[in-house]
């Protein structure tokens, strides 16, 4: 799989933007892209187990690293969380996080199709559900 299509990247950006607006006042230390990853993780683990999710995320990380240097220092733990994220700069984390999320969503689209991917995303962010469908098909 090469670069994810622009609309998958657009979907990733919209999810991140939504998380940013939701967490403006919160004190979470996790950058927005990784908050999205975390929320996706909760659902995907119920569908494929933690081992399955870890495998999918490791593939998304490899694709991200093939595309740019942002997250090359980062390693993935067995539970699907990241190590050495705190060593990176804010921009690096954000840009890398967008690409990682794009590839994760791209893998899901390749695996179960766009319809079901949007449906799963809509389960996590029901408030975005109508826009997701509209946006992805334009």
């Amino acid at each position: 799989m090469g670069q994810a299509p622009p609309r998958t990247r657009d979907l990733a950006r919209r999810l991140i933007a939504h998380e940013l607006s939701e967490n403006k006042s919160s004190e979470t230390k996790n950058p927005a892209p990784f908050l999205v990853d975390q929320k996706l993780r909760a659902l995907l683990v119920t569908l494929m187990g933690s081992v399955g999710f870890q495998a999918l995320l490791s593939r998304a990380l490899a694709l991200t690293n093939a595309e740019g240097p942002w997250l090359r220092a980062v390693t993935l733990k067995a539970d699907g969380s990241f190590e050495r994220l705190d060593e990176l700069g804010e921009d690096q984390i954000f840009e890398g996080g967008v690409v990682l999320l794009t590839h994760l969503l791209g893998l899901l689209v390749a695996f179960i199709g766009e319809d079901l991917t949007l449906r799963l995303v809509g389960e996590i962010w029901p408030e975005l559900s109508p826009d997701l469908d509209k946006g992805s098909r334009t």
Binding site: M48, G49, G52, I112, G113, D115, L116
Partner: peptide, 10 residues
């Protein structure tokens, strides 16, 4: 796993 089922059953 369910994700694989969804892939094919759809």
């Amino acid at each position: 796993p369910a994700i694989k089922m969804l892939r094919y059953q759809q």
